[in-house]
């Protein structure tokens, strides 16, 4: 359905925006390394079914490979700044202070409590869904602490939030047309979209209405 396609395209766009800007400006100002590392972990634990011959479709396969490869590539790209631009790297590390072990532990507990089947793959899948729902927090925390946002970060978060928002409509669509519902994905997806709601409000004020100014 269209919500799903545009949701996935929006997700692709967010990665494209991030990669393009980092590569063309050679700047990592405002990007949370922790959020990017968490996304790499999300895709590594979710797409293990790539190795189990669980074929869904070519679309599904190619997207999984892309998300897995691009998330790892972004982590490597950011790590290269460690030697390439140590000052910028150090600045990022100093701002990137969110304690992610709570997110990891919380997602692990949620994965162990809520899953479709008690198998390693299913628990890791559930862990990845819960972790994805909170993985943006270090980035949002960094944004609110610095009080100013690079247009890169703002557009990146907007595209990512739009992807989650569209997925909710995709689930409503699928519930109506296929009577299909994945409770874990839906609950985690709503949690994740809620994470962005404050950001959407700021984005609306700042970008759409053109109010330049500091973020609260």
């Amino acid at each position: 359905n269209l919500f799903r396609i545009f949701g996935d395209l929006s997700h692709l766009a967010s990665i494209g925006i991030l990669l393009h800007t980092v590569r063309s400006t050679q700047s990592i100002d405002g990007i949370s390394f922790k959020t990017q590392a968490l996304y790499a972990l999300v895709f590594m634990t979710r797409y293990l079914d790539l190795f189990t011959w669980h074929w869904v479709s070519l679309y599904n396969f190619l997207m999984k490979v892309f998300f897995l490869a691009s998330s790892v590539y972004i982590v490597v790209l950011l790590q290269q700044f460690r030697t390439k631009n140590p000052i910028a790297y150090k600045e990022m590390v100093l701002q990137d202070t969110f304690k992610i072990h709570f997110l990891l532990l919380g997602s692990l507990v949620a994965g162990l409590c809520f899953h479709h089947r008690f198998t390693l793959l299913e628990i890791l899948w559930s862990f990845s869904v819960w972790l994805e729902s909170v993985a943006i927090l270090p980035q949002l925390f960094m944004l609110s602490k610095s009080g100013r946002a690079q247009s890169l970060t703002v557009h990146y978060i907007f595209a990512l939030g739009l992807y989650r928002f569209l997925y909710i409509f995709n689930w409503i669509w699928r519930y109506v047309s296929e009577a299909r519902v994945d409770k874990i994905a839906v609950v985690a997806g709503i949690v994740q979209t809620a994470m962005y709601s404050d950001f959407f409000y700021i984005y609306y004020k700042k970008v759409i209405r053109g109010n330049a100014g500091n973020l609260p």
């Binding site: 079914d49 869904v56 599904n60 999984k64 009577a179």
Partner: peptide
């Protein structure tokens, strides 16, 4: 509503 048998979403 039925539960998904496979994870066909990303």
């Amino acid at each position: 509503a039925k539960r998904p048998a496979v994870h066909d979403e990303l």
